[in-house]
Computed example of a mutant assay.
Amino acid sequence: MTDSVGKSVVGHTLVTVSMEVLYPPDVQSLQNQTVLLNNSLTVVCNLTLVGNPPASNYSWIRKDIGRVIGTGKTLIINNIRLADEGEYQCNASNRMQPITNEVLYGLSQSTVYINVEYGAYVREFKSNQSHNSIAVNQGETVDLLCVADGDPEPVLRVMNTTRGNESIMVEIKGREAKYRIQQAQCEYDTGNYTCLADNRYNEGRQLFALLVYCKCILFY
């Protein structure tokens, strides 16, 4: 600026502006969980960024039914059941209101799969629809069937325990084991049989008794 006498004058002013950046929260990736049946489980929804303003709303959704089952950062399931196995989603959100007065909601999500495991056990051990025991004639065929369950999948063994020791006849990993006795002999096959199911939590077993009638030999 130049005044009336020709002298130059420099004028200036300073304005301070405060800028606040709003941003949504960011949920940390959740690790899948494995829990034993009837135990309790706690899963925490942690944030890598809390957001601005900080996240204030948390919810947990059971994804297979699409229903909110909890609020807050922490999900707690007591006495967990097999029906609780599935995928769960944590939602974290904040409410952002810029100077335009248009309210925006920031949202971040992460999912966790909860796997419920349980000890091995034998559901049934039978032969020809008979449970516990069966009697057959010598020379007949006997089919032994053991059905078991467990998670992790159990190892099944069908054993002859007749003579004071355990002779393994079938050993597989699965939930069903079969063993066929061709032409059963009274002197060799009569006795007790055991089905054993085993995983890292439990060992279950069930007995089955087989009686083979000997053929009569007539001498003249």
Rank of each mutant, 00 (worst) to 15 (best):
Ala55Asp: 04
Val21Tyr: 11
Ser40Val: 01
Val21His: 01
Leu14Asp: 08
Met96Val: 06
Ser56Cys: 11
Thr100Met: 09
Asn57Val: 14
Ile76Met: 14
Thr34Leu: 06
Ile114Gln: 01
Ile61Thr: 11
Tyr121Pro: 00
Arg67Val: 15
Ser8Cys: 08
Asn91Met: 08
Val17Asp: 02
Asp84Ser: 00
Val10Asn: 03
Pro98Gln: 09
Ala120Leu: 13
Tyr58Trp: 15
Ser110Asn: 12
Pro24Tyr: 07
Ser56Met: 07
Gly51Met: 02
Lys73Arg: 15
Thr2Ala: 01
Gln109Val: 00
Tyr113Ser: 04
Ser40His: 01
Thr71Ala: 15
Ile69Tyr: 05
Ser93Leu: 04
Thr13Lys: 07
Leu36Asp: 06
Gly106Tyr: 03
Gly11Gln: 09
Gln28Gly: 04
Gln97Asp: 08
Asn32Phe: 03
Asp64Ala: 15
Leu82Lys: 08
Asn91Ile: 05
Pro53Lys: 13
Val50Pro: 08
Glu87Met: 09
Leu49His: 14
Val17Gly: 02
Tyr118Trp: 03
Leu14Gly: 02
Asn115Gln: 14
Leu47Arg: 04
Ala120Ser: 14
Thr42Gln: 10
Asn32Val: 09
Ile69Trp: 13
Thr74Phe: 14
Leu37Pro: 08
Leu47Lys: 02
Val122Phe: 06
Val17Asn: 08
Ile65Ala: 14
Tyr88Asn: 13
Thr2Val: 10
Cys45Val: 09
Leu49Trp: 11
Pro54Leu: 00
Ile80Phe: 00
Arg95Val: 12
Val122Leu: 02
Lys7Met: 06
Cys90Ala: 11
Thr71Pro: 15
Val17Pro: 01
Thr48Gln: 03
Pro54Asn: 10
Leu22Gln: 00
Glu102Thr: 08
Cys90Asn: 10
Gln33Pro: 00
Ala55Glu: 05
Ser18Tyr: 02
Gln33Ser: 12
Ser108Pro: 07
Val35Tyr: 09
Met96Gly: 04
Asp3Cys: 07
Gly86Phe: 11
Met19His: 04
Met19Trp: 06
Leu22Trp: 03
Asn78Pro: 12
Tyr105Asn: 03
Leu14Ile: 06
Leu37Asp: 01
Val27Cys: 07
His12Gln: 11
Thr16Phe: 08
Leu107Ser: 00
Glu117Met: 09
Gln97Thr: 03
Val44Asn: 12
Ser29Asp: 08
Asp84Pro: 05
Asn78Asp: 15
Thr111Arg: 08
Asn101Phe: 05
Gly66His: 07
Asp26His: 05
Gln31Gly: 07
Thr74Tyr: 14
Asn94Phe: 02
Gly66Tyr: 14
Ala92Leu: 01
Val9Gly: 06
Trp60Arg: 10
Thr71Trp: 12
Gln89Cys: 12
Val44His: 02
Gly119His: 11
Leu104Pro: 03
Thr13Gln: 05
Glu117Ser: 04
Gly66Ala: 13
Gln89Asn: 10
Thr111His: 10
Asp3Pro: 02
Gly86Thr: 07
Pro54Asp: 12
Ile76Asn: 15
Ser59Thr: 02
Ser56Lys: 13
Ser29Gln: 00
Cys45Asn: 09
Met96Leu: 11
Gly66Val: 12
Pro24Ile: 10
Ile76Leu: 14
Met96Ala: 05
Gly72Phe: 14
Arg67His: 15
Gln33Ile: 13
Leu104Thr: 01
Met19Gln: 03
Trp60Ala: 07
Tyr23Gln: 01
His12Ala: 00
Thr34Met: 06
Gly72Pro: 11
Asn78Ser: 15
Tyr105Lys: 14
Tyr23Thr: 03
Leu75Met: 08
Trp60Phe: 11
Asn39Asp: 11
